[in-house]
Computed example of a mutant assay.
Amino acid sequence: MPIRTEQPSDHAAVGALHRAAFGGGHGGTVAGLVDALRRDDPATLSLVAEEDGEIAGHVMFSRCLLDAPHRLVAVQSLSPLAVAPHRQRRGIGAALIQAGLRRLDERGVPLVFLEGDPGYYSRAGFAPAGDHGFRKPSLRIPDQGFQVVRLSAYEPWMTGTFVYSATFWDHDCVGLREPPHV
């Protein structure tokens, strides 16, 4: 399965993929986040997996910060990750994650954070970030869902609070929201 850098000609297919994978209103929110991250962070690493000539999966890694005691550290966030519903559970998401982590490691990125299912992401080397001295940026993020992977450039002094880029906050894509009361 080929994995490659997303091209502008892929944007519509990637948006449709996120709407299908996340469903309902949330799929539109995630597709909007992807569009905004492309616009707001030109260095975003955006990868697609192809299968049978179609976009089967997409992952995005974007610039964030770690507020460490010594200084701010440029880190990355893995968000979002989506695989076409009819192609899930075949290793596409895992392959996208590993390809992205390899590229980020080559670029000298020390840490990658995410919010997600620990059962899934632990297979890609992620661990609960709180267990490694990191603080989450929102109380709405479940402790076990706030995860990190340390890459080659990581140094032990790199601890502190993870800070999402403004784009995540602008799109209200940090942490879990309680269902609205009716």
Rank of each mutant, 00 (worst) to 15 (best):
I3L: 09
R4Q: 14
E6C: 09
E6V: 05
P8S: 06
S9Y: 01
H11W: 12
A12I: 12
A13I: 00
G24A: 15
G24K: 12
H26V: 10
G27M: 08
G28S: 10
T29M: 12
L37Y: 12
R38N: 03
R39D: 10
P42Y: 07
P42K: 03
A43H: 11
A43I: 00
T44R: 11
T44W: 01
T44Q: 12
L45V: 13
L47P: 13
E51Y: 10
G53V: 00
G53Q: 00
G57N: 07
V59M: 02
F61Q: 00
S62T: 08
C64S: 14
D67P: 09
D67S: 15
A68C: 13
V73H: 07
V73P: 11
V75T: 15
L78D: 06
L78N: 06
L81Y: 06
R90C: 05
R90K: 11
I92K: 02
G93D: 07
L96I: 04
I97N: 07
I97H: 06
Q98G: 08
Q98C: 03
A99Q: 13
L104T: 04
G108K: 05
L111E: 13
D117I: 13
D117L: 13
G119M: 08
S122C: 14
S122H: 14
R123Q: 15
A124Y: 06
G125S: 11
D131Q: 14
D131G: 04
G133A: 02
K136H: 00
K136D: 02
Q147A: 03
V148S: 00
V149D: 01
S152W: 01
A153F: 06
T159P: 03
G160W: 01
V163E: 11
Y164Q: 10
S165M: 03
W169N: 05
D172A: 15
G175C: 01
E178L: 14
P180R: 13
P180W: 03
P180S: 02
H181Y: 05
